[in-house]
Design a protein around this nucleic acid. Structure first.
Lengths: 229, 229
DNA sequence: GTCGAAGCAAGAGCAGTGCTCTCGTTTTTG
DNA sequence: CAAAAACGAGAGCACTGCTCTTGCTTCGAC
């Protein structure tokens, strides 16, 4: 950890933070489409060209916000998990915390799981931080399995070749079967998907009580993953 | 059906079609973000301002493309369904057709199920046409139930108040229970969600054989809805 | 048929965008 | 102390969605 030695270096990280935070605020207000580099610069009282000393492009700024958001949703999920409680309680808590973060940060959710705005791939950089939320679900399932509380219902078989070896590495030490891994992937996909449906209005004329239906979904997915009520 | 009487009226619907089709092409190439009204006008050899005689705004054009895409994905799903076959075969065929349409029209998929680009709600206009794809799944399930082939596994209960009465109306005549309805909603959500994951790269380091994992997902969801192998 | 009204295409223009380049100024470094 | 690197500001480019005005064509009622 090298501390900033010069005053200029200190000012740089300070200004970087300020740019990021006002960009975050504008993202929360107008969404990714409404986030304007010039507007951020205007708010900070600097020339728009000066921003480019800190972020190479608008997409770079968005990527920074992407990483920040992944971290936040990961922290929300992890923070809601209390390993001392029963698996189903832990499961529900994490699901609810993820939903609540998403409802409170819908534009950030859209940035993470919506349409990839420009064309950036955001590759391995976010792989670490993007895994925190789904890993929380995996940890709960692994703990339940360790204590013998995992009783998944029967279902279709999944070919082992359908899942990457990287996935096995990511879940290292949890000793999941192929089917258990596949079901975890589906649970993660479900959690993101059902929130997306709620946020994007696809449940508008379908669901009357979104929170209740979300809870039903969470319990359904818990049961599918073998976590008993 | 009033046929266009004047030459002007005929030219109008003709030009409207041309605008829509070149806009659709540009959408397929560059995505919704890259769709430019001026560029469409340029390609058609007309002034950009002239477009506004046919579409009140860029969002209006996008909404027209949205309706068109909903129709296409609905037709793809319906067209893949052969009522003479076994429920599981029908189910898989519809799922695969929906996935294939989405892979071939990823920008259109993004328009339908991705981040709502501007701020348009696109309300009851699309409710009819948006329901075609999920209704195909419902019809298969209803047919299976009618012939006594529906055997859904046990699972959490869903409170009836969580689902809207409109949903009951939409599934009129199919006589689904609350749980069956809820599971259908989840199947529809799953189909869209797992395709979105594949398209947006969330499965990049997770899934090795996307088609195989999709089939596994389809079978899983079939079983959850009571459709036997 | 005539003639006013409506429909239409084109162009200029406004406000905004991302991004680049240049030009002084300031700060850091050798 | 001087060379070098970092920096902020401003002008400018090419683009966007959208509006307004200006003429021209077509339509429909008298």
């Amino acid at each position: 950890m090298n501390a900033p030695r010069t005053a200029r270096a200190r000012a740089r990280i300070e200004l970087t933070r300020e740019i990021l935070s006002t960009a975050r605020r504008q993202l929360g207000e107008a969404g990714a489409a409404g986030l304007s580099l010039r507007s951020v610069a205007r708010e900070l009282g600097m020339a728009s060209s000066a921003i480019y000393r800190y972020f190479a492009s608008r997409d770079d700024l968005l990527t920074a916000l992407l990483v920040e958001s992944y971290t936040e949703i990961g922290e929300a999920a992890e923070g809601a998990d209390d390993p001392g409680r029963a698996p189903i309680e832990r499961w529900l808590a994490v699901w609810r915390a993820t939903r609540e973060w998403s409802l409170a940060n819908r534009h950030e959710y859209a940035l993470l799981f919506g349409t990839p705005v420009p064309g950036y791939a955001a590759p391995h950089i976010t792989a670490e931080v993007a895994g925190r939320m789904p890993l929380t679900l995996a940890r709960i399932t692994a703990d339940a399995k360790r204590s013998g509380d995992l009783s998944p219902p029967p279902g279709p078989a999944c070919d082992a070749s359908a899942i990457t070896p990287e996935m096995r590495v990511m879940l290292e030490g949890m000793e999941f079967s192929v089917e258990e891994t596949a079901r975890l992937i589906l649970a993660w996909n479900r959690l993101v998907g059902i929130i997306g449906y709620e946020l994007h209005g696809h449940l508008a004329n379908v669901t009357a009580d979104d929170a209740a239906f979300f809870d039903y979904t969470a319990r359904t997915e818990a049961a599918f993953n073998g976590i008993a009520v």
